[in-house]
Amino acid sequence: MRISARTQYALRAVTELAAAPPGPVPAEKIAVAQQIPRRFLDNILLQLRKAGIVHSLRGPDGGYWLARPASEITLADVIDLVEGRPEYQGDYPGVAQPLADVWSALREHETKLLTEVTFAQIVSSRFSA
């Protein structure tokens, strides 16, 4: 699985929000803590807000926070939002046909893992492969 820099940033931003105390977290604080370019982060946070993963509040006391508990947001929620679902890779002719089954099994394992791991597990270090 190839994960873009944009997706890595989105995962890091959501992790930062999951670890934060209750209340809005300024985008600048997220950007500094996770070393994410601010302009890039603003676009990511907008995408996460439109998808209902985060809420936002404008103003001097504003910022971002998770729209639901970190225990209900999975890595797959963020990855699917930013990357989209991978497309079917096509058929393999002749003796190469079993390769299609291998790739299918690999996608199933990836999906299973990513839909089971929540941001609550990530921030509490309760994840182990």
Rank of each mutant, 00 (worst) to 15 (best):
A105P: 14
Y88N: 07
R126A: 04
G52T: 11
Q34M: 04
S104W: 12
P37S: 06
V117S: 15
Q35Y: 13
Y64M: 09
P93S: 07
G62E: 05
T118I: 06
V117F: 15
S124M: 01
T111I: 15
Q97M: 04
L11A: 00
D42P: 07
S124A: 08
L17Y: 02
L81K: 02
K29N: 03
Q89A: 15
A13N: 02
A105H: 15
V54M: 10
G62A: 02
A76D: 05
G52V: 11
A33I: 06
E16H: 11
G90A: 07
A51M: 06
A67Q: 03
D80V: 01
S128A: 11
G59T: 00
V54K: 13
E16W: 01
W103D: 07
V95L: 15
W103Q: 04
R126K: 03
A18F: 11
D61L: 03
T111F: 15
A100P: 09
S4L: 08
L11P: 02
A31R: 06
Q34A: 06
A18W: 10
A105F: 14
R68I: 02
E116S: 13
E72R: 03
Y92E: 08
V123T: 06
L41H: 09
V82S: 13
E16C: 14
R39Q: 08
L45A: 06
Y64H: 10
P69S: 05
Y9I: 05
Q8F: 09
R38S: 05
V95N: 13
V25P: 07
A19Q: 13
D77N: 01
P60T: 03
G23E: 07
R107T: 10
G63A: 10
A13Y: 00
V14N: 00
R58L: 09
A5N: 14
V14S: 02
Y64C: 10
E83Q: 13
R6W: 02
V123I: 05
S4Q: 10
P98L: 00
I3M: 07
L46T: 12
L57T: 09
D77A: 02
S124F: 03
G84K: 10
A33G: 10
A96Y: 06
L57H: 10
P98Q: 03
G23S: 12
I44W: 02
R107D: 14
I3Q: 06
P69H: 04
D80L: 01
V117D: 15
A19K: 09
R58Q: 09
G63P: 14
V54F: 09
R49Q: 11
E116L: 12
A18V: 08
D77S: 04
A120S: 15
F119I: 14
S4D: 08
Q47R: 03
P24Q: 09
G90S: 13
E110H: 13
